[in-house]
């Protein structure tokens, strides 16, 4: 798959700087994932800070890759699904760094880096890296950025929700396994989930609205045919329900967190499905997906 990606990019004249930084970033995220999991299981031998530094180096490489691509091809990283998912990955990592700098959240990295590494591996395996030549507009750029940032926030909410459910289960069962000893307290995780939803929901709302406006110029028919619209709208409702449920008190505790997990699973499934679809369908259909890829929010 890696060779295929190389091949595909080489066809589109990717320079050596972009190639090196792209693959260095993926490698660094994989290393960060291994370090972070080891730090969770063996905290006396390995420090989570090492994973953070490695992840930061990976993010730096990925950022450099986007700059190199822009310098050589003159396009933002929205021209193919592969780069869009890479950009989403960068947003997830940035969201992790923002969250961990604002609050002490030990062990979160052991979930964030492996998740990012998995996203990148799946991306390498499935996403189409061939550029599709749709011209970006400022509206489209803002739409994509807002949507990806909201995904970053939901990604953090999902990680915190997973940790909350693991910790809550252990506490309910009166267990004290080594795995959860470095987890942040339940209250911190709950607060992180709620904050991420409150930050992510307006971003997603604005991103979706701008996406509708951007697509409306191509006619309502293209909106109706877009395969990402139904899951995106469902996601928006799920997150709205989670936020309102918590606020109004009709959806508390575990159920609220299950909603968040379901919402993020929907996002992942949409992307993975789209990636597989774009790989397995004909050129004509791929061209259609590319238009979708450039409007990932809807």
């Amino acid at each position: 798959m890696l060779l295929q990606t190389f091949h595909s990019f080489t066809q589109h004249a990717m320079g050596p700087a972009a190639l090196v930084t792209l693959h260095a970033s993926i490698l660094l995220f994989l290393i960060a994932a291994v370090i972070s999991v080891t730090a969770l299981l063996q905290p006396r031998k390995v420090r989570m800070a090492w994973a953070d530094w490695t992840g930061a180096a990976g993010a730096l490489c990925l950022g450099t890759y986007f700059i190199a691509r822009f310098a050589e091809a003159g396009t933002e990283p929205f021209t193919n699904l592969f780069e869009v998912i890479e950009l989403a990955g960068l947003c997830l990592v940035l969201a992790y760094f923002v969250a961990t700098r604002l609050r002490k959240l030990p062990a979160l990295g052991a979930f964030a880096f492996p998740a990012v590494a998995i996203i990148f591996i799946v991306n390498l395996a499935f996403a189409d890296s061939a550029a599709q030549g749709r011209e970006s507009t400022p509206l489209l750029v803002v739409h994509v950025l807002l949507t990806l940032l909201s995904y970053g926030a939901f990604f953090m909410a999902t990680l915190a929700a997973v940790m909350f459910l693991m910790l809550e289960r252990a506490l309910k069962k009166h267990r004290d396994p080594a795995l959860i000893r470095n987890f942040p307290p339940l209250e911190s995780l709950k607060r992180l989930v709620n904050t991420c939803i409150l930050v992510g929901l307006p971003l997603l709302t604005a991103g979706l609205a701008l996406g509708f406006i951007a697509l409306s110029s191509s006619g309502w028919e293209s909106i109706a045919r877009n395969p990402k619209i139904p899951p995106s709208v469902v996601l928006w409702f799920v997150l709205l329900l989670a936020a309102a449920g918590r606020r109004l008190g009709f959806l508390q505790g575990r159920r609220n967190f299950y909603m968040v997990l379901a919402g993020f699973a929907l996002v992942v499934m949409t992307f993975v499905g789209l990636g597989i679809w774009s790989r397995t369908h004909s050129t004509a259909q791929t061209a259609f997906v590319a238009v979708d890829a450039s409007c990932i929010g809807i």
Partner: peptide, 13 residues
Amino acid sequence: SVAVRFVKRIFDD
């Protein structure tokens, strides 16, 4: 001390 440890697993402040 184990009880307090569990309390700290639940509450941050």
